[in-house]
Design a protein around this nucleic acid. Sequence first.
DNA 1: AATTGTTGATACTGGTCAATGTCAACTATT
DNA 2: AATAGTTGACATTGACCAGTATCAACAATT
Lengths: 153, 153
Amino acid sequence: MNKIELTNVSSIPSYTISNAARLLHISVHTLRMYEREGLLIPFKKESNQRLYSDKDLERIRCIRKVLNEDKIGIEGIRKLLSLIPCWGIVKCPAKERKVCKAYTGYSKPCWMLKHKNNVCESKNCRDCDVYSSFGNCESIKDKLKELIVGSSK
Amino acid sequence: MNKIELTNVSSIPSYTISNAARLLHISVHTLRMYEREGLLIPFKKESNQRLYSDKDLERIRCIRKVLNEDKIGIEGIRKLLSLIPCWGIVKCPAKERKVCKAYTGYSKPCWMLKHKNNVCESKNCRDCDVYSSFGNCESIKDKLKELIVGSSK
DNA sequence: AATTGTTGATACTGGTCAATGTCAACTATT
DNA sequence: AATAGTTGACATTGACCAGTATCAACAATT
């Protein structure tokens, strides 16, 4: 099911930053700003050049919808993202959780932190399920629904 | 444990709106605005007069911190509040969830909706644990930590 | 060689919105 | 009767910020 979604919207990073900006009708600068603010993790070549996939573009459209239509600022989005229960998604051990700022903190999404000595260390955040929880606009709550079953009656 | 917290900060509604405004150094108008925007549910007498408790004041201080320091707007707070997994807190049956806008929607906290034919119908939102999940500023994530245990290793 | 990319800094603009003020008509408290 | 509360509407203000623009120095792509 996740596999299907992944193939429906291509995750292959193929657009340069200027091409991506043209497709989205925004400036190159704005794309870099989103990245600096922690909302976006584009693919990077060895040369450090950014490349964007269709999935990235979808995420950016979502960011812009929230910013422009819902009138929620970048700081607000970051707060929303920091509510994503990464510990439940990547199944990090309770021992690691205790000292992890993604678990104990409240202001930054996990992928903005330097993760050392835990299950995330070897992971690439761009490809992580936690980061993708914001792939489309309602997905954070959908992820909560998945994780919190509550009464099964 | 919850009992202790409840008695530490009084939930007894004792301040009139003008007294509450004076204590918080804001205007009466602002208090009514927060209420209209769905961030606050003051106690109401039969005569419709609002009364605020110390717990209410604490919540309002939290709202103002998020608004003024974190620079998240009212709409953003509402989005945060609508992420509270009420279905896991009040243990509403799966059958009810399916047709409940608090579960299916993404933009309004449950207490802003008219709830009919479900477990919430008889409840007073002001006293509900869901509404209290925003009693202090970090409590939404803390509630998620409670509900999502993840790996128990 | 020319284009397109990278970094970081700095400054400006236009629009949005939290908050306040004020008006009017009414009701409850004291 | 006077005070303090309620509702709704409408206008204003001041601050913030998303987005753009433009520097400069440099590296990679084509």
